[in-house]
Design a binder for these strands. Structure first.
Lengths: 133, 133
DNA sequence: CGGAATAACTTGCGTAGGCAACTAGTTGAT
DNA sequence: ATCAACTAGTTGCCTACGCAAGTTATTCCG
């Protein structure tokens, strides 16, 4: 438990310094990126992140203010939005990638065997699934 | 990574509701408790927690204001303090214990096999050690 | 079709906690 | 003994984010 916080904090600092992006923001950009052109709803984004609705509203506001994402009203539900990366956002994400992977390696993955990595992945997936349900 | 945050948050809510104690505070109390009568230095406490010096100062202030811990000037180094639980702090910790273990089980441990638990423990210990060094 | 129940955000408010700069005590070298 | 380097905590400032209470928009009944 403590270990995971230590890792996250170390990565956050690395990413912030080298790419000017907080870990949480990087994560959001990565998820939004996967949604591609058509965009993603904040609610769906929240499912993939660790934020609550309110936290997400603010994070999205920040990313939008930075010009990294754009939003448009969802055509099928006027309450919601569709978020997608801007060109600038894609660039930021691309440029952050090397540092991101380096940092993951240094603080986390490089210390694990293949077996351990796999065990962690399946275990945490199961745990997250249990709590969502 | 995400999973661990989800678990921590869930436990934090449980503990806050049922025992009136944040997870981070519970963790600090537990470490201080282990130090026993003689107390522990804030710096040593920081090593076992996820907080920085400043965060720790504030957390300690809070716990002290709540009457859960007491501090005295360290006899061998006038810059520092020795922190120890008060009777009230010990009681709070004892009363929180059942909920704490229940919550760990529900959100985390119950979803893992023995083998997985062991793998996680050793892996994270190694990781934390690497980053401290 | 009208009104309750629900869903998708948003906002006001409060707190935790990081960083960098500061104070004060300790140690070590000359 | 003195002065520089270090270490222990503290504090000012700022940001992220949770919770609870809104505000629209949508859906589900009858």
């Amino acid at each position: 438990m403590v270990g995971s916080v230590v890792v996250a904090r170390a990565m956050d600092r690395d990413l912030q310094r080298q790419a000017g992006l907080a870990l949480a923001e990087h994560h959001l950009l990565a998820i939004i990126n996967e949604a591609g052109e058509q965009g993603i709803r904040p609610t769906d984004l929240a499912l993939g992140s660790t934020l609550t609705k309110s936290g997400l509203t603010r994070a999205v506001d920040r990313l939008e203010a930075l010009g990294l994402i754009g939003s448009r009203v969802c055509p099928t539900d006027a309450r919601g939005q569709l978020l997608a990366l801007t060109a600038k956002g894609r660039q930021k994400l691309r440029r952050a990638a090397p540092e991101f992977f380096r940092s993951v390696g240094q603080h986390f993955a490089d210390h694990l065997t293949e077996r351990e990595t796999e065990t962690l992945a399946t275990a945490f997936e199961r745990i997250a699934a249990a709590d969502r349900g």
